[in-house]
Design a binder for these strands. Structure first.
Length: 930
RNA sequence: GGGCGGAUAGCUCAGUUGGGAGAGCGCUGCCCUUACAAGGCAGAAGUCGCAGGUUCGAUCCCUGUUCCGCCUACCA
């Protein structure tokens, strides 16, 4: 039978397209509750539905695919569930920008039509990233594709919301929340990014009303908020100020007086002047202090963080200032307030101050603390079990270093603000009876959203309902038909939608059919492993654990593998604005998908960011090509008889490679068990290139190239079998290349993807052949070094002699003389040095082996001499160190016996080598070159 | 402010019961040797951040310190 042959260079594009389609057509990645094997489930971290593949996705999904393909080949019933999330704020922003281009806002088109437009946009761009995942080779079960706004998942969201509400774990309340004045919505604490900046610390003087000569100096970074101050706080035990507690100060720039209060929580006596202004409506600490002391909350800003004239008036701000700052954005207002303070000699000084500025994680706008009624999840009761699950290792976080990070965050967790003032998402299942709540539902002309000046809103959409915090909601899985109190049927549904992460938190079970007890849910939940980046540990992982435990009574996954962030070659975070983005798709078409996958896996060392340099991808492209060419070589020699004899009866080279392959199989499997993708790829690389190609293929060439050897048929069998095993071992990392090669190798089955993953076979182990090989390798390398020192071309046949100190080793060398001669391209004689033509021989000693190279013709021996002298130097140094150590009574008395023995052995060997080297030196000088 | 991680060859990184410093890429020299020049062979290259301590012995353990990242935080 004639084997098909391969092209000279591996061309990935065509190959990838072919096998990618083949796998899907054959349905190899499909999971079913009725399949055999232990279930192994991974749910994909859902990318944004309208996004496209970036390098972080490529890493994340490559690692998942490696695990999935590996477990599938091991015989597990594997489900890799793909899907996307609706990315509320981000997606809405995109569509709003599209509208803006037509001079429209979402208020113009109205809620229903707007949502319809977002669905259209999702339809149009939603498949992009899924196609890109397929291109990457991701072997997801596409029949299980889910989207966070699917009907089933939306049912799960309502179910969870209602149950949490009924248990009192969801509540609505007027609180200070993080507000993005550009997105015009509330944000949760984790959606605020903190950036260190140097701000200004303003010192302002407030005078007592009764004692005009006495004043308090307060320090603030936000002077404009002083207009909303409702008290000044000092420490109750601060002798400088505590006698002032209970007195009133005049609030500059207003006609209000505010009290001086004592508060030991808010006030740090050491900081600033020890006196703090309190603005409950604009600062989180002040809000809490205000609650403690029953202070009024005076807001100053509207929803876009501009100074609101009505509110300024209510705060009794001086008329002149009111006119100046009305409708001004915060920063402008700050400067104007400062000007006025200066004018009234109230501003003492301004100093630099390091502080953290909160920004919206979606649009980087500075976030404002904003007082408004919002929905919250009472988190502590959910957090406690989620803390325990990780503490007692029911859930393992890998690498373990992140465990404390998780626990620390969970132990300090605060209630989760889940309402968002946007339209795209799961609308909150809460309704208000218009009759019972007529005083709490205010018609507002103050539409929340972008208004475009030239396009005034139609009357009908202007009427926005503002729901006061005392309104009584009806929370229900379906829209209510009659009010239980007044039997009325006029309802207003809460217009807010839920935080996208609320639905993502249910992902591991909502995607499997929960709340129904489906076969999928019963079979594939809990999932095995979650693979994700650190950036969403709190956003997503923590919340999945809380919700999973709460609603399924089980952990959502056993292992959380946290991978690194991909940075550019300089270690900078990739971003479009910096222009340092590495596009995975470009790299895939340049170097092949397998090369990119291999690079990402190789660089996934735990606990370290990945600095991705293009040369690495190129290096692994070369690796793929190397394997390809090994495949070519093997197929060129595949024609001919093949016999299967017991491995122990095969040639030395065959026994050796089987034994080495066994190590490889063990270490790749062990590395994958430990999520050490870097180690697995490194073992595979080293073995394939530097053992299999460099040595094994070279060792067997004489056997293959001449059919008269009796061993040829069994060596041919070894060659084909080991290479086929290697393809299977490598398949999870390089799925396309291995499928392409495997299909032309002799094999059973239809696709490598569904073959068994290799397992070590104890009978392949052969430590004695491995030891013998090391001796051979040392000998050949030494001979080649000699060849190089004498500047003999690789093609020039040479005459060699060899001997080892140890007679057993000499015997081994003699036994494998033919291999040695072939690999060193020499005629070779193993035996006593007396037989060597000593006068014309360059002798090199390594370990216990001496190699003699016959010197022919006129050669420059200087290189050889330099080399020998350098070796003498380093070995002498080492010997001196060992001697010193052994001479120390402390060492011989206290060190472990085998350490002492080893040192002695090493010293002995060094001394032998030094003797040989000295004699080589002497000899070279005699040969007349010194 | 607190916490975590890192600092090892030119670059990117491995390196655990403390005992002879490794890999990949790059670099140098030779070679188009019939699988592969996206290749082969050989080679150079490192006071393991700094200073102490523990130990017979420290890249490794301890303390301090510098620099760089990240997370977190209500010092106005």
């Amino acid at each position: 039978m004639t084997q098909p042959q391969l092209e000279k260079v591996y061309e990935p594009q065509e190959v990838e397209k072919r096998w990618g389609a083949f796998w899907i057509n054959q349905g190899y990645q499909k999971a079913s509750p009725t399949h055999s094997g232990t279930p192994y489930t991974i749910v994909i971290p859902p990318p944004n539905v309208t996004g496209s593949l970036h390098i972080g996705h490529a890493l994340n999904n490559t690692l998942q695919d490696i695990l999935i393909r590996w477990r599938r080949m091991q015989g597990n019933n594997v489900l890799w569930l793909p899907g996307t999330d609706h990315a509320g704020i981000a997606t809405q922003n995109v569509v709003e920008r599209q509208l803006l281009a037509d001079g429209q806002s979402r208020e113009h088109v109205g809620r229903e039509k707007f949502i319809q437009r977002v669905w259209e946009w999702k339809q149009q761009s939603g498949d992009t990233i899924l196609g890109q995942l397929r291109q990457l080779g991701a072997s997801c079960d596409w029949d299980h594709l889910r989207f966070t706004m699917d009907e089933g998942l939306s049912t799960a969201v309502r179910e969870v919301f209602v149950r949490l509400y009924e248990e009192g774990l969801i509540y609505r309340g007027k609180r200070l929340i993080n507000w993005c004045p550009r997105c015009l919505t509330a944000l949760s604490d984790v959606e605020v990014e903190h950036e260190s900046v140097t701000g200004d610390l303003y010192h302002i003087r407030y005078s007592l009303i009764d004692e005009v000569d006495t004043s308090l100096i307060v320090a603030t970074t936000r002077p404009e908020t002083m207009l909303g101050d409702t008290a000044v706080a000092v420490h109750p035990e601060d002798p400088r100020y505590n006698h002032l507690i209970g007195k009133q100060v005049h609030l500059p720039l207003t006609s209000r007086t505010i009290p001086i209060i004592g508060d030991s929580i808010l006030v740090d006596r050491e900081f600033g002047t020890g006196a703090v202004k309190i603005t409950p409506a604009h600062d989180f600490n002040d809000f809490e202090a205000g609650e403690r002391h029953g202070l009024a909350q005076l807001s100053l800003f509207d929803h876009s963080a501009h100074l609101d004239p009505t509110l300024l008036n209510e705060a009794l701000v001086d008329q002149r200032l009111q006119k100046t700052i009305a409708h001004k954005p915060v920063l402008e207002a700050r400067q104007l307030v400062v000007d006025h303070l200066k004018e009234q000699e109230r501003l003492l000084n301004i100093e630099d101050h390091a502080m953290a500025l909160g920004k919206c994680y979606r649009c980087k706008t500075v976030v404002e603390p904003y007082l408004s009624p919002q929905w919250f999840v009472k988190i502590q009761p959910l957090a406690d079990p989620a803390i325990q699950a990780v503490e007692n290792d029911t859930i393992r976080i890998i690498p373990e270093g992140w465990k404390n990070n998780y626990l620390g965050w969970m132990r300090n967790i605060k209630d989760w603000c889940i309402s968002r003032q946007i339209w795209w998402g799961h609308q909150i299942p809460a309704w208000y009876c218009q009759t019972c709540n007529k005083d709490s539902l205010l018609q507002s002309s103050h539409a929340v959203g972008v208004t475009v000046e030239d396009h005034p809103l139609p009357e009908r959409t202007k009427a926005n309902c503002f729901i006061l915090s005392d309104a009584k909601p009806l929370v229900s899985r379906t829209a209510p038909t009659a009010c239980p109190h007044c039997k009325g049927s006029d309802f207003y549904q809460d217009p807010d939608v839920l935080d996208t992460w609320f639905s993502s938190a249910l992902w591991p079970f909502s995607t499997l059919g929960w709340p129904e007890q489906t076969q999928d849910f019963k079979t594939f939940y809990p999932t095995a492993t979650l693979v994700t980046g650190l950036d969403i540990l709190f956003f997503w992982v923590a919340r999945m654990i809380m919700m999973g435990l709460k609603f399924t009574g089980q952990v959502p996954f056993r292992d959380v593998y946290i991978h690194a962030l991909v940075r550019d070659a300089e270690g900078q975070k990739m971003s479009k604005s910096k222009g340092n983005v590495i596009d995975p798709l470009t790299k895939m078409s340049q170097y092949g998908t397998d090369a990119l996958r291999y690079t990402l896996a190789a660089m996934a060392s735990p606990g370290r960011d990945i600095k991705l340099a293009e040369e690495r991808i190129e290096g692994y492209r070369n690796f793929a090509n190397k394997i390809w060419n090994a495949g070519r070589f093997i197929l060129m020699h595949a024609n001919g008889p093949v016999t299967m004899t017991p491995v122990q009866e095969r040639t030395f080279a065959d026994r050796w490679i089987y034994s080495r392959l066994n190590h490889l199989i063990r270490s790749v499997n062990a590395s994958l068990e430990d999520y050490r993708f870097d180690q697995a790829t490194s073992h595979l690389y080293h073995f394939l290139w530097h053992e299999y190609c460099d040595w094994y293929l070279e060792l067997i060439k004489p056997t293959l190239q001449a059919d008269e050897y009796p061993d040829t048929p069994s060596t041919r069998h070894t060659l084909l079998t080991t290479f086929e095993i290697l393809q299977r071992l490598l398949h999870p990392f390089m799925p396309f290349l291995t499928e392409e090669i495997w299909q032309v190798l002799p094999h059973e089955g239809t696709s490598i993807m569904v073959q068994a993953y290799p397992q070590a076979q104890a009978e392949w182990d052969s430590p004695q052949d491995e030891e013998a090989f090391e001796l051979l390798e040392q000998f050949v390398t030494t001979a080649r070094t000699g060849r190089s020192l004498l500047d003999y071309a690789p093609s020039k046949p040479i005459t060699l002699y060899g001997i080892a100190e140890d007679p057993t080793e000499t015997n081994i060398l003699r036994q494998h003389q033919a291999y040695l001669a072939h690999l060193s391209k020499s005629t070779l004689q193993i035996g006593s040095q007396k037989q060597w033509t000593s006068a014309q021989t360059l002798r090199l000693a390594v370990g216990g082996t001496t190699v003699g190279i016959m010197v022919e013709g006129h050669v420059d021996l200087k290189k050889a001499l330099d080399r020998i002298r350098k070796q003498i130097q380093t070995k002498q140094k080492e010997a001196t160190r060992l001697q010193g150590r052994l001479a120390s009574p402390d060492f011989t008395a206290k060190a472990l016996p085998d350490v002492i023995q080893e040192s002695k052995n090493r010293l002995q060997r060094l001394n032998q080598e030094l003797t040989l080297l000295a004699s080589s030196d002497q000899q070279l000088q005699e040969m007349g070159i010194a």
